[in-house]
Write a protein that binds this DNA or RNA. Structure first.
Length: 171
DNA sequence: GTAAGGATTGGC
DNA sequence: CCAATCCTTACT
């Protein structure tokens, strides 16, 4: 059970497309003891541009959001509620801030639990998905899965932007 | 410097 | 319903 590591062209695209295309793809995590675990992505959310009030980049380019302005293919992690590391993949091209949040994968439900399962921490900020030995994403060559779109979770503060159906769930 | 709040979870 | 827990951002 192995596939091709996703490349530059995959991530340097619009986050709405990347979020949809990531469904069914497989996160591979290689731990310090060289053991590997694989997690099939089942739920994603897109965050796109400074206009998107739910996107962290709505506050502009800061130390925290810097990596979102990089070209697609890097990891964006941040600590939320002082406890949970959220896993995101940067998308789009240089200087356009966008990312996809992985909300569920494998048997793990919920982004906080996923971050704990993957043993994420601040050292994953900016990790390059194209050459990392710790985390990357593979395409096992399966058919594109069926999915549904819904509003994003936990961003009620974003006003009209909270209504956009930028969350995608296998189904 | 200080304060407010969060892309969540689990326990009461 | 609400506390945990700490980083980021904004600013009386």
């Amino acid at each position: 059970m192995q596939g091709e590591r996703l490349d530059k062209a995959f991530f340097e695209a619009d986050p709405l497309l990347v979020a949809q295309n990531l469904l069914g793809k497989v996160i591979v995590r290689q731990f310090d003891d060289h053991s590997k675990k694989r997690y099939r992505i089942s739920e994603t959310e897109a965050y796109r541009g400074e206009d998107d009030l739910a996107c962290h980049a709505a506050k502009g380019r800061t130390a925290r959001t810097e990596v979102m302005y990089h070209a697609g293919g890097k990891v964006y992690v941040y600590l939320v509620y002082g406890m949970y590391w959220m896993l995101n993949f940067v998308t789009s091209g240089f200087n356009y801030p966008a990312a996809v949040l992985i909300r569920s994968a494998g048997e793990i439900t919920g982004p906080g639990r996923l971050g704990r399962e993957l043993q994420l921490d601040k050292t994953f900020y900016g990790e390059d998905l194209y050459d990392s030995l710790r985390i990357w994403v593979e395409d096992e060559g399966r058919e594109a899965p069926v999915f549904i779109a819904t509003p994003r979770i936990g961003i009620d503060y974003a006003g009209e932007w909270a209504k956009k159906e930028w969350r995608f769930v296998l189904g």
